[in-house]
Design a protein around this nucleic acid. Structure first.
Length: 703
DNA sequence: GCCCGTTAA
């Protein structure tokens, strides 16, 4: 059997012995080592499932499902019995389950109702090198848990290329085991200089491979849909000319996230005989999807990355250089089935001197309001939010921004302590502004409508129709969509109307297609709405289903209440129109000049002016700073919020004026397995981050 | 006039 040869099995004794002796072990295993499927089974064989369940976290849903399926198969058991999985909307575990695969988000949720995670004897954090926001929080929680939990707990942190030393230091010098993978060698070829235009450069390299190199598929990493479409067109054109010669056939496949699923699946089908496939992809092919048969990789060296600026509250989507970890991950995609080649469209000096070692972790690129609320809602008195032990701490500025946001929506009081409202918000799997909107809507009697809007917003990117690439005619505008118009109030109301129409058709797939929306997205909204309704049902009265057959007057009242709830929930996302034109300035710590996104359905009045005050769901800087998903609100709702903003004192919010907390509880537990001191001086994280940030920003400015 | 990489509760 293939499995018998998995490299990790040769290390079984060593792994078990190390786990016996240490609460935390780091395991570095390259692709193909079998760590995701074997580690849990090894520990199961050695009795670790007698005292509890083995949990294995995955950053992605599909991985949790597919890996658990394979393990069940290998153990010859029914999936959902001894081996199961739990992901959002789907729990396939039972009382018999001893090995449980779950997304890290699900484990975080479980930790909310059971901070000790007492049902688990072992927790394996898999793919930790991806450094997802959730994984990073779990790392901090695990560090605390191994000291505090009364019953024995083993933690394994496994990853492909993670800097093992760094994690080991984080966990008091815990041991690091290396397990080799089963990758074939990949020859790295650098360009003499960095391409001025990486699309052109990729095109040349691809054609060169096609003409000169033996069979084998080519995977090309671009940054986004635009690049991909350009390159696909050019490749098709050039290869058609070539084919009159003697080269083999070729097909060219785009691959990115906004492609409908049936188009994504094409890359998994068997390739036609005697035909080379060119797959032009975003970083979706870096980790999320694995394409078989790739022998050549072309790496542009760039990626599109979303980042949050805590001082302005603005997201931006920038093309940035990849990290060394990412470059190696991309190269590795060429060596899965046989030796391969990776063409890097940049010189080795750029790789060595310019690329960051690792991608900046998500926790340092995101708004932390949700994360901070989550930590505050855990009933653990020894956690002070500003002192929470992160592998890579976020900046003080980012934490303060999060506290300010939470205070403005009354999730914490002026002393930084979580309110009962805040606790209710933490129960909802939503960003805080949306949770707050729901709770306010409950009091205002428009909860069914708010549930719909919030569910629609949380799926919004997967709703929009796929942009067609053929629309290159300059004069052709987007076809007039016959979607509802939000009655002039803006995008939130439009989202509500869209869903209500769909509900009227009894969730017809045809209706969705006719209106150029994505079926997958709408079905997701339906699931989210159902989940949120179930949670809200516990504290709300009255029906929460979509309301139908109301009178016009009732609907107007609902819209008004809904807009009011949105205003309360988005207290940190308000903007005021300029006097003489339709530009806006945001109301907050640092005012920004912004505009309503052109896709908005917000309507101007008879004089052509937009409303004086709006709330927005998101601030994003693309070609300009834009507010996306905008809704008109009234000044009288805004006024009290403005007063609050003026009086706000961040130093109180961060709890620095509070007396330090007692830590007696900690001493009781820690005596158990404290052979090494836990308190280690962090090696000056702030200066390290600062330096990384500066490099990062400088690079951004360069382009 | 815009147009988004990815993931998740």
């Amino acid at each position: 059997m293939e499995r018998m040869k998995l490299p990790i099995l040769q290390y079984e004794d060593q792994i078990v012995e190390t786990v016996e002796k240490n609460p935390v072990v780091v395991i570095i295993g390259e692709t193909g080592s079998g760590k995701s499927t074997q580690l849990s089974q090894i520990l199961h064989r050695h009795g670790y499932t007698t005292s509890g369940v083995i949990a294995v976290t995955q950053p992605r849903r599909v991985a949790a499902v597919s890996v658990s399926r394979r393990v069940a198969q290998e153990l010859g058991v029914q999936l959902g019995e001894e081996v199961g999985y739990a992901i959002r909307f789907e729990d396939r575990t039972s009382e018999k389950t001893r090995i449980k695969y779950l997304t890290d988000g699900v484990l975080l949720r479980e930790s909310l109702s059971n901070p000790d995670l007492s049902q688990y004897s072992v927790i394996i954090l898999d793919e930790a090198h991806e450094r997802s926001l959730n994984t990073d929080i779990l790392l901090g929680l695990m560090k605390r848990l191994i000291r505090l939990r009364a019953t024995n707990l083993k933690v394994l942190i496994t990853s492909a290329t993670l800097d093992g030393e760094k994690v080991s230091r984080f966990f008091s010098q815990c041991p690091v085991l290396h397990v080799p993978g089963k990758l074939f060698p990949v020859e790295i070829l650098y360009s003499p200089e960095r391409a001025k235009n990486y699309v052109e450069s990729a095109l040349k390299t691809a054609l060169d491979i096609h003409v000169k190199q033996p069979e084998g598929d080519v995977l090309i990493f671009m940054t986004g849909q635009d690049d991909i479409e350009k390159l696909v067109l050019k490749l098709e054109e050039k290869i058609q000319h070539l084919e009159q010669g003697s080269v083999m056939d070729a097909i060219i496949l785009p691959l990115h996230g906004s492609l409908p699923p049936e188009m994504q699946i094409r890359v998994f089908g068997p390739p036609p005989p005697n035909c080379r496939r060119f797959i032009v992809a975003t970083n979706i092919a870096e980790t999320s999807l694995t394409v078989d048969g790739v022998v050549y990789v072309i790496d542009s060296g760039y990626v599109k990355q979303r980042q949050y600026n805590p001082s302005t509250g603005m997201y931006s989507l920038d093309v940035v250089q990849i990290s060394k970890v990412q470059a190696n991950q991309r190269a590795g995609r060429a060596g899965r089935t046989r030796p391969g080649k990776c063409h890097r469209l940049y010189p080795s000096i750029v790789y060595n001197d310019d690329f960051l070692d690792a991608t900046i972790p998500e926790i340092q690129r995101s708004s932390l309001a949700g994360c901070v609320l989550y930590l505050k809602s855990l009933d653990i008195s020894d956690i002070d939010i500003l002192e929470f032990d992160y592998l890579d701490p976020p900046s003080a500025e980012s934490l303060e921004d999060a506290l300010r946001q939470l205070y403005l929506i009354e999730a914490i009081d002026e002393g930084g302590v979580i309110t009962s409202l805040g606790r209710s918000m933490a129960d909802l799997p939503l960003e805080p502004s949306l949770s707050r909107t729901l709770l306010e809507a409950k009091d205002l009697g428009c909860l069914p409508q708010a549930l719909t809007v919030v569910a629609m917003l949380s799926a919004e990117t997967s709703l929009l129709p796929a942009r067609s690439s053929k629309n290159t005619d300059k004069k052709r505008k987007t076809p007039p969509s016959n979607l509802p118009d939000g009655s002039g109030y803006g995008d939130h109301i439009q989202l509500l109307q869209i869903y209500e129409h769909w509900d009227e058709t009894f969730y017809s797939t045809e209706w969705v297609k006719e209106h150029n929306l994505q079926v997958r997205g709408m079905l997701f909204v339906k699931e989210v709405r159902k989940q949120l309704s179930q949670i809200m049902q516990k504290i709300a009265t009255g029906p929460l289903d979509v309301q139908q057959g109301r009178r016009r007057k009732e609907i107007q009242t609902e819209y008004r209440n809904l807009r009011k709830a949105l205003c309360v929930g988005n207290a940190n996302q308000l903007a005021e129109r300029m006097m003489r034109h339709n530009g806006y300035k945001t109301l907050g710590l640092k005012s920004q000049l912004v505009q309503v996104h052109p896709s908005s359905v917000l309507q101007p009045d008879e004089d052509g002016m937009l409303p004086n005050y709006v709330v927005f769901h998101e601030l994003i800087s693309t070609s300009r700073p834009y507010m996306r998903n905008v809704c008109s609100v009234e000044m009288r709702w805004v006024a009290p919020i403005l007063q609050k903003i003026e009086k706000l004192d961040v130093s109180k919010l961060s709890g620095t004026s509070r007396p330090s907390k007692e830590r007696t509880q900690e001493g009781d537990f820690s005596s158990q397995k404290e052979d090494k001191p836990i308190t280690q001086a962090p090696e000056d994280p702030n200066s390290r981050i600062q330096a990384a940030r500066e490099r990062f920003l400088a690079r951004r400015g360069n382009r």
